[in-house]
Amino acid sequence: MTNGDTAPDRLDDLLLAELRQAVNAADPVPGRLLDSAKAAFTWRTVDQELAHLQFDSLADADSEVAVRSARTVRLSFATERAAVEVEVDDAGLVGQIVPPPDGLRVLLRSGDRIDVSVDEVGQFATDRPPTSPIRLEATFGELVVITEWFGLS
């Protein structure tokens, strides 16, 4: 304030530095979240083919549609060899995998795996709504395709 026009900026920088310390002290990253972030590495898919998210009705920038049917989320995943379409809502999930896989499992964050039956055209349904992010693992003979994590929240 006394040294010309750079002084207010310098005061702001100082205040921001103090704020950084105060916020980090009052609201630190919880230790268990740090642990889980470190453990995320063990989920890396090495042998499976990762199906990347292609479409997410909630992430669609023209969000009118998304908002109107906000309790239903539509997602698409794809690899070069398979496509996965899923609809998630409070009742559970329904979807289709093309080509139809030999087997399908829902993987939970806890490490649990739940087998889901798939019909001859690759359609599936479960009545278990995801409470935290899940992923789908489809097997095609030797090949295992796994989606990225997804969920309602």
Partner: peptide, 12 residues
């Protein structure tokens, strides 16, 4: 949940 998802996404 979002915190964990962000790191899971990065890992993959």
């Amino acid at each position: 949940d979002i915190y964990q998802t962000a790191w899971l996404r990065l890992a993959e």
